[in-house]
Design a protein around this nucleic acid. Sequence first.
DNA 1: CACCTTAGAATGTATAGACATATGGCGCAA
DNA 2: TTGCGCCATATGTCTATACATTCTAAGGTG
Lengths: 236, 236
Amino acid sequence: MTLSLHERIRTDIESAILSGKLAPEDRLPVEHELMQTYQCSRMTVNKALSALAAAGLIERRKGAGSFVGRPHAHSMILDVPDLPVEVAKRGHVYGYQLLVRKLRAAARGNAEEELLAGGRRLLQLDGLHSADGAPLAVERRLVSLAAVPAIAEADLEKEPPGTWLLRHVPWTEAETRISAVPADAEIARLLKTPVGTACLLVERQTWRSSERITAVRQYFLGTAYHLVARFGSSRP
Amino acid sequence: MTLSLHERIRTDIESAILSGKLAPEDRLPVEHELMQTYQCSRMTVNKALSALAAAGLIERRKGAGSFVGRPHAHSMILDVPDLPVEVAKRGHVYGYQLLVRKLRAAARGNAEEELLAGGRRLLQLDGLHSADGAPLAVERRLVSLAAVPAIAEADLEKEPPGTWLLRHVPWTEAETRISAVPADAEIARLLKTPVGTACLLVERQTWRSSERITAVRQYFLGTAYHLVARFGSSRP
DNA sequence: CACCTTAGAATGTATAGACATATGGCGCAA
DNA sequence: TTGCGCCATATGTCTATACATTCTAAGGTG
């Protein structure tokens, strides 16, 4: 694989930074120096440096120069896969069972639900995810009918609502909270596990622009599931 | 904030994708059409499309065209904050206590430890994080002396090793596993909680290129801590 | 009908130049 | 000495063009 010139410039600088030859806050050669070094035009140098800046490795300041960025943006990519797909990838047979389907108003005094409902009704969907027939997770989901009227007619007996929503409703923003909680009586019964078992609790809300679409709480059997987040380029 | 032209083209297409106007696999207008639409040169269009491709939102195929990417959408940004900073941000007083500091060889037969050690010794660091004096998390960390010889002389009594490493050792890749486990006897004793309490277990390994730097297991008191991941721009 | 060739289309890379705009340091003046 | 303004510096954006590379589809040939 022969690299193009701007890729070569980019990787040269990248490895200088990663190897420590260039330390954080160090100043990089200015564009005209790099033009001379690589005997190329300024646009080519610019493309390489812009890519590094977009990746967060360097910081460019108009009028001042280019500088190596502070150690790291401590943020990683968290894969939040579709459960059926993820279970299948691990070699198990995925199953879903709809437990509760209920059209109702937002609970009075529950600010979260009232924001989600937006004056109209909510669709509550409780369900159980399983792998090879064994319970994996139980979820309670609320969907805003104001935002997604079409879901009232969707067939959600076999297909989990998360998957349906993924395919039918584009969202622009989402927030996920991850914590560990003991299973209460109801969760324990559904997951066929003792009360108090450690569960991974995933709470997620999604928006389209500023309109709230759905909120979900998923309780995973702690020993049977984990999330993975990555930073970096490689791929195991 | 007035956007530059290539930024405007980029955000226009971006919002068309996120709003669903452009579906995955859809073909984008070709560069010459966009030149006409925006009355600009091809380089400007190219810059916008290249940025979208770098971000993974679109895929460009030489000779064929540009296409909206597969919904790689559900990967989110997970903040992996420095614990002292995070605790302070929540308005508590952070504390750290080093429990064990031990230079040792990799455990025989433990492939993970042997890979990390790389033929040399490991530094084992066990410690307890607390907020307002109450135990928050216990961690066991192994650092490769082959990769980070300098840590042998570091003062790690007050400053947690994670913070020291963040400041002194650049890493290029990291992987985090998140799961929920019950506290065993030792963890429970250190966290001053009953055996079996639900704990959030965060396991992280970091590399510089292909050289392993450190591996850590952190047990968080489930009720006292949570992680947050986001997708999208705004939101508190 | 199956296969090969080929022309056109679309992106990839690179050049040379122009003007815009933010920065920081130097020198001049109060 | 201090403060202000100017200017050289460096990046930001954009143009117009050129040629390379790869894919697609049309059309011809056996």
